[in-house]
Amino acid sequence: MDFSFDVIAHNLPYLLAAARWTLLISVAGMAISIVLGVLLCAARLSSNLALASFARFYISFFRGVPLLVQLLMFFYMLPYVGLDLPAIAAAILATGMCSAAYTAEILRGALQAIPKGQAEAAEALGIPSLALWRRILVPQAIRLGLPSLVNELILLVKVSSLASVVGIAELTRVSQNITGETYRPLEIYVAAAGIYFVINFVLSRFGRMAEKRLQIG
């Protein structure tokens, strides 16, 4: 069987349409991941014992259970507690909440990598703690954590393919469907791989640009 570009050309519109769901899950997931990740990191570092242990529990749970299992739990178990989420919401929540655990740890690592003396210098000058965080700690944590954060976001795009198990017509699911109809797995999966790659390539370029802008010296 020869590789046929016609098959790709013919099916590309369907694949691209499906890629929109992939993008939706990824972008919404990233938003949840970053906002929740920041909150979790703050909770994890907080001197409030209850907050810190909650964050610790959250992180170890979402890091310790396969995302596929989390997704199925969100989809099948939440209705039992009266939360009947549409499949797409379950998928976005599961990927975002799982990724937030990693984001929180990335941020924590970055914050703890900043030498203690920098906060001390600010204290000795009488700089208020809000300004210390806003002007000195957070900008550096972002700079230090950015490569790992971009990594995490790229990972998030890729794991959005798991949403296929709850019936969402995202890129991987649609590729499977088309393959079932056309019996051309090679062409279809090559095309799907290409689309994933392009999305992540753009994302990593954005990451590189941000790193350059934040770079010093």
Binding site: P115, G117, Q118, E120, A121, E123, A124, L125, G126, I136, P139, Q140, R143, L214, I216, G217
Partner: peptide
């Protein structure tokens, strides 16, 4: 502390 300046062994400048 505003009235007490301090200089550290490791400089502790803010690198960014």
């Amino acid at each position: 502390r505003q009235h007490i300046g301090m200089v550290f062994q490791q400089f502790n400048l803010w690198p960014h």
